[in-house]
Amino acid sequence: MTSTLNITINGAPHEIALDDPRATLLDVLRERLGLTGTKKGCDRGQCGACTVLIDGRRMNACLALALSHDWAEVTTIEGLAEGDTLHPVQQAFIAHDGFQCGYCTPGQIMSAVGLIAEGEAGLDPERVREGMSGNICRCAAYAGITDAVLEATRASGTRTEDERTDA
């Protein structure tokens, strides 16, 4: 049975004739749409390598059946840069060596974008580390990841609790 999936990915609307309701959003992105930047590390929601933004929230694409996100807006790693201009989080990951093998990196970056938008961690390193702990980096580039998120948070103009109090 073929179902129709209407989904906007990185700003572009797609109408996908999906012949298999078992397909996860991750596998639809990777195997049917060729958006292979989103990675599969565990397929069980345990590692975060497949993190994407669904309607602005960070989610594990491996745990999302594609058809359950009809009419959703999805942002993947491919949709972050504007042309040749990298997103501030992408720039910060390069500057702080926030990755080694690079396999978890798309998920880390999407998670960082989501975390900064949530505004809960601010410039508190401990809360950033906690907020990024759903994304495993086996190379353990955690120091660089944390520094990158903090720098990108600063660049985004997110204010800390202290600054809010001061103001």
Binding site: G37, I77, L86, G102, T105, P106
Partner: peptide, 9 residues
């Protein structure tokens, strides 16, 4: 290889 890795390419 930084740009390739942070863009998913």
């Amino acid at each position: 290889d930084g740009i390739l890795k942070v863009t998913g390419a």
